[in-house]
């Protein structure tokens, strides 16, 4: 987990290459197998949630701050895109940009006062923010459509080429995921990333050597909000429908679960967690019918208990297990 902080560039390149290749091949393979065909559809949503999770990963894993308002930025993007394209017919990409701008301003307004202080204030401020935003979406029926939602949001295209099929949209979403992943990896390797790591290990020490702690935290919070906003816009144009309950506090919590289960100290963890939770909730668990909630809870518990570092730590764990099985030199401490 912690080791990923210091991953060398040369170790990253094959991983990224493999990731890109996997993204490219997935729909081609899925279409060959009958019961996997609609997995592409689920993967589009997994990609959208991956985006939101990536931003949150930066914020939580690297800046050590919890946000309970991430679904609201996701929702701001979705509603700005949805409302403006539906009511005024303005170019969707312009709305994506507008959503990013608004989210950045709002994130700054919330982040600036609460991130100057040490501690958990961001979590509480974003909780209040999230509840307020959901009520605003619900109450302004004339603009947002209220609780019944806003339907018939137009799709999105690139230079007049309509992305009107699941597979086309899949490639759009996952290309953006790849781009954002590269961006986030760069942030981590940059000055900001180093500063953040120093904050995470000891905030007072970082402050003492002259790192402007608050500035970097606000920077990351705004960045994560902007990424979530993009994800929201993509969601609106894909589903062609939005309603307030898709962006409420429980979605924020779902995003938290994603990154913690995936492994929040690694950006890959965000993606792994988002894909896992999306598939669990949209595809695999419904076979359990009424027991679904219980099974979901049990899976979350099992992962957090046995893999506190998240799923990305599984290969390392497996290696350790394997080594133990093999040589038996390392004796595992029982209990503790």
């Amino acid at each position: 987990m912690a080791g990923n902080h210091t991953l060398k560039r040369d170790k990253m390149t094959p991983r990224l290459g493999g990731f890109a290749l996997g993204i490219f091949l997935f729909p081609l393979l899925a279409q060959q197998i009958d019961f996997l065909e609609h997995y592409v559809d689920v993967m589009v949503f997994a990609g959208i949630y991956s985006l939101a999770a990536l931003g949150l990963c930066l914020l939580m894993g690297y800046a050590g701050q919890i946000s309970l308002g991430h679904a609201s930025f996701f929702g701001l993007g979705a509603y700005i895109s949805g409302v403006i394209t539906t009511k005024y017919g303005i170019n969707p990409w312009l709305c994506v940009f507008l959503g990013m701008l608004v989210s950045a301003v709002v994130a700054f307004a919330i982040g600036a006062p609460s991130l100057r202080l040490r501690g958990h204030y961001l979590a509480m401020a974003t909780l209040a923010f999230c509840i307020i935003v959901t009520i605003i979406f619900n109450e302004n029926v004339a603009i947002t459509g209220g609780p019944d939602g806003l339907a018939f949001i137009p799709g999105i295209g690139i230079f007049g080429y309509a992305l009107d099929s699941v597979t086309k949209y899949y490639y759009l979403v996952w290309s953006i995921v790849l781009l954002v992943l590269l961006l986030c990896l760069n942030v981590i390797r940059s000055r900001v990333g180093r500063a953040l790591r120093s904050i995470h290990s000891s905030e007072s020490a970082a402050g003492a050597v002259g790192v402007n702690v608050a500035k970097y935290k606000i920077y990351v919070f705004v960045l994560s909000a902007v990424i979530a906003s993009v994800a929201g816009s993509l969601y609106a144009h894909y589903l062609n429908f939005i309603n307030p309950s898709s962006f409420d506090l429980f979605v924020s919590i779902k995003l938290l679960i994603m990154i913690v289960l995936g492994g929040m100290y690694s950006l890959w963890g965000g993606i792994v967690g988002a894909v896992l939770i999306t598939f669990l909730s949209y595809e695999w668990l419904h076979y359990f019918e009424d027991a679904e909630v219980m099974v979901y809870g049990a899976i979350v518990l099992v992962i957090i208990i046995f893999l506190p570092g998240g799923l990305v730590s599984l290969p390392d764990k497996a290696k350790v297990l394997w080594a133990r099985e093999d040589g038996g030199r390392r004796v595992h401490k029982v209990g503790q």
Binding site: D34, H38, L239, S246, Y282
Partner: peptide, 16 residues
């Protein structure tokens, strides 16, 4: 009650 889930399932009903 989740709109996303609903859309996924409807597409699954139709296509798969």
């Amino acid at each position: 009650g989740d709109a996303t889930k609903c859309a996924i399932f409807v597409r699954k009903l139709i296509l798969q």
